[in-house]
Simulated assay, not measured.
Amino acid sequence: MADWNPTLYTRFEDERTRPAAELLARVSLDAPRLVYDLGCGPGNSTALIAARYPDAAVIGLDTSPAMLESARARLPGLAFAQADAATWVPERAPDLIYANAVLQWLPDHATLLPRLFGLLASGGVLAVQMPDNLAEPSHRLMREVAASGPWAGAIGDPAVAGRLGRMLDPGGYYDLLAPLAAAVDVWRTAYHHPMQDAAAIVAWVTATGLRPFLDPLNPDQTAGFLAAYEAAIDTGYPRRSDGRRLLAFPRVFIMAKAP
């Protein structure tokens, strides 16, 4: 995919940071020495970690040069590096691996999550949060629009672009990690974000879930796709009593502690 756009991503930073803060609040470590923030993005989650654990070595990792540049500008006192969570191996075992809204982009969770868990130091914690919204209108309509217009050939299989089949249900994640861990906590929360209009919902997902659909398109195809998608969103998210739209956004949280 093309590189991420930090400016577009941070347009909804408060909403994106809320689950990151709630994930961190459940981490049961008092004084970790080494913490990695996988998929750190523009550093909003890394800032939370550094504030909670000021004595820890906190390192942010991301595949995006643009996101890393933004994170370094925001937090010049912290370390950031380019790395892929699918293959990353730390130089020494960390006390906390924190992965907020990143692992949903990667396949084969049945292998990935136990691998990451196995990298922890004794007593360490793997803390994961992933959007679980592929069945929501925002993402269902992406796939429907992708399959129904002149851009369909360029996008290919909407299920592939939409990352269908990558996520397990919460029980599946529990079953993966419970035999390995001293303790596992898995929960699912649905946020409901008031959005100004259909265009705001499109702007939100353009920075994230819509990217695999848009990357293969030329400018004319992109304009046509976005117009059709916004029209579908306008129908899929009716106006509420104050004229806004309510964007339901389910997320899965996983907390696993190493023996």
Rank of each mutant, 00 (worst) to 15 (best):
N133L: 05
R115D: 02
D132C: 11
Q82N: 06
P107K: 11
D108N: 09
L68I: 12
T63M: 15
V89D: 12
D84T: 10
W105V: 02
R115W: 13
L106D: 01
A121W: 03
T111V: 10
R143E: 09
A79W: 00
A93F: 04
D62G: 07
A121K: 05
A71M: 06
V145N: 03
S148Y: 02
A121S: 13
A147S: 15
R72A: 15
P90M: 09
R143C: 08
L75V: 10
L103G: 06
F117E: 06
L78D: 07
A79C: 04
S64T: 02
L106E: 04
L75N: 12
D84P: 10
W105Q: 03
L141S: 11
A83H: 08
G118L: 09
A86N: 05
L120K: 07
A99R: 05
V102Y: 07
V145Y: 04
P90G: 11
M130H: 03
A99P: 06
G60D: 14
A57Q: 15
P107C: 05
G77C: 14
E144N: 06
E144D: 14
V58E: 10
A127T: 08
R115I: 06
A57H: 13
I97C: 15
R140F: 00
T63D: 05
N100D: 11
P114K: 00
R92L: 08
V145S: 03
H139Q: 14
R140M: 08
F80M: 00
A101K: 15
Y98G: 13
W88G: 01
G123Y: 12
N133E: 03
F117N: 04
M130C: 11
A71C: 07
Y98I: 11
W88Q: 04
V145Q: 02
A110C: 06
G77N: 11
D108V: 03
I97K: 12
A135N: 13
L61V: 01
A110Q: 10
L126S: 03
P76D: 09
A93C: 07
N100G: 07
A81R: 12
A99N: 05
D95F: 04
Q104G: 00
G77T: 13
V102A: 14
E144G: 01
D132A: 14
S148V: 03
V145D: 03
P131C: 01
M67C: 06
A135H: 13
L134F: 08
G77Q: 12
E136I: 13
P90W: 01
R92G: 10
P114L: 00
D84A: 10
L141V: 06
V89K: 14
R74D: 06
D108M: 03
A73K: 13
P90L: 09
A86S: 07
A101I: 10
P65R: 14
V58K: 11
L134Q: 11
P90A: 13
L134E: 13
H109R: 02
A146N: 12
A79M: 05
R115E: 01
A101E: 10
S122L: 08
L126I: 06
I97E: 13
D132H: 15
T63V: 15
A127I: 11
L112G: 01
L68S: 09
